[in-house]
């Protein structure tokens, strides 16, 4: 497992066009199971920090290689951001359906129980849709938001992942942030 992700990251580095698509499912699975573990093991009052989750996933999948470069990490974070988004959206959708159906089934704690307050599910789904529309305007802006919001990267870190300057990142962020807000207010 460990070798796999490192190899894929290297393949991406060497320009293998197939590699990113192989990376995503691995990262997704890891994050999902990590989140589930956290939720069952730890106290309920605690909040789950996606940043911590993603960093932990990185350590588990790639290992503590000190020389790991940021570019190399960048691919990982991109995959992680997309995974986090998927996990949370899927789960918000399921919640919504469950609520509509009105059947509350008691299960063991699972990643599905990673929850946002009920109203937050709506917000998150709205954000997801707005993000999809933003991706049509400029896919890079959508990626930027994914990285910032779903993995909690700072402006500087995001800039490194996307390979643009922090200044540009900051400007793009301001635009994407306002754009999404406008979009979500309008669709309300």
């Amino acid at each position: 497992m460990k070798e796999d992700v490192t190899q894929i990251l290297n393949a991406i580095e060497h320009g293998d066009p197939e590699a990113p698509s192989r990376l995503l499912p691995l990262v997704y699975d890891e994050l999902r199971s990590l989140a589930a573990i956290k939720m069952t093991r730890e106290s309920a009052e605690q909040t789950l920090q996606p940043t911590a989750l993603v960093h932990e996933a990185y350590l588990r999948l790639v290992g503590g290689n000190r020389e790991a470069q940021w570019d190399n990490r960048g691919h990982f974070f991109a995959a992680a951001a997309e995974s986090m988004r998927r996990i949370l959206i899927e789960q918000a959708r399921r919640r919504k359906t469950a609520k509509r159906g009105g059947d509350l089934v008691r299960r063991n704690l699972d990643v599905d129980d990673v929850a946002l307050a009920n109203s937050d599910h709506e917000t998150l789904l709205a954000l997801d849709e707005a993000l999809n529309r933003l991706a049509l305007v400029d896919p890079n802006l959508a990626r930027l938001v994914e990285l910032r919001y779903f993995t909690g990267l700072t402006i500087d870190e995001t800039a490194k992942v996307l390979g643009v300057s922090p200044r540009t990142t900051k400007r793009n962020w301001a635009y994407a942030r306002a754009w999404l807000r406008r979009e979500m207010e309008e669709s309300d």
């Binding site: 309920a44 129980d113 929850a115 306002a178 999404l180 807000r181 979500m184």
Partner: peptide, 24 residues
């Protein structure tokens, strides 16, 4: 856009954080 920029409590200002559902 400028209005949206100035509005407080933008969802995006802090990364998503979640908590266990039993408490939610």
């Amino acid at each position: 856009l400028l209005d949206a920029h100035e509005l407080p409590d933008n969802l995006l200002d802090r990364p998503v954080a979640v908590s266990a559902s039993d408490q939610a």
